[in-house]
């Protein structure tokens, strides 16, 4: 594959002594949407949390192997630097409850103690909110609490918050599972419009969703990477029996 942005080599992840990811070798293509699928408990969230090194903050969380971002192994970097380059959006919308919408968007700068001039801040906020297709809805209420928004809007606010840091990759862990179909459709459109700017990795349980938005799909089963390839190929001609069974709804 040409020019992948993230490469894992023999990636193992543990919770204590429990091996959750077994020798994952994966190449995430740049400026595409990659979906990670698999039955519940197969390690999708764990894989995502390895990429931005949140995994090692879980009790007993441990990683072995390599994860290359460009040509550096992120396991040798300062996790804080990694997380500034790889953003994350969680399953449940989680805007900071004590902050306004405006402050939520530039939270990455403020919380890190980076000084922004008024003009810079305004610009970042507007660009990020436009990027997250939220600007028109909130431009007049920027100074209200972020938690007053609807669930779908909150999730887009969280995407804007991640975008504001200009990350190279955004990780999304089932970002629409807490939302209604309309808000879900909105976010899907948004993700497609974003992929020219940033590489997107999304965990989803929804086969339809992966089919609609993902260029590539990885299928995990019991901590193993069973199959990885272009979504269309994977969906129409799965090579592995387990992939086929999952796609036809036999389990998960």
């Amino acid at each position: 594959m040409e020019n992948p942005i993230l490469i894992t080599e023999n990636l193992k992840a543990y919770y204590g002594n429990h091996l959750v990811l077994k020798d994952i070798n994966l190449e995430i293509p740049r400026l595409n949407i990659t979906a990670i699928m698999g039955p519940s408990g197969c390690g999708k969230t764990t894989l995502l949390r390895c990429f931005n090194r949140l995994h090692e903050l879980s009790p007993g969380g441990r990683i072995e192997g390599q994860i290359w971002l460009g040509d550096t192994d992120i396991l040798s970097l300062d996790p804080i630097m990694v997380r500034r380059r790889i953003g994350m959006v969680f399953q449940r919308p989680n805007p900071f409850p004590t902050m306004s919408i405006y402050d939520n968007v530039i939270a990455g700068y403020k919380l890190n103690g980076m000084k922004l001039s008024r003009v810079e801040a305004d610009e970042i906020v507007e660009r990020a909110l436009r990027g997250a297709a939220l600007w028109d809805e909130v431009k007049d209420i920027l100074h209200r609490r972020g938690t007053f928004l609807s669930g779908g809007q909150q999730q887009r606010l969280c995407i804007a918050r991640a975008l504001a840091m200009n990350p190279e990759v955004i990780l999304l862990d089932e970002p629409t599972s807490a939302l209604d179909p309309k808000a879900t459709a909105h976010i899907e459109e948004l993700l497609i419009s974003l992929k020219s700017r940033v590489t997107i990795i999304i965990v989803t349980h929804n086969i339809g969703q992966a089919g609609r938005i993902a260029d590539y799909t990885a299928f995990l089963y019991l901590g193993e990477l069973v199959e990885f390839g272009p979504t269309e190929r994977l969906f129409t001609a799965p090579k592995d029996r387990r992939t086929e069974e999952y796609l036809s709804g036999k389990f998960g």
Partner: peptide
């Protein structure tokens, strides 16, 4: 985690 994921110490 939201804050940590933004690279906040």
């Amino acid at each position: 985690e939201a804050a940590l994921a933004l690279g906040v110490p």
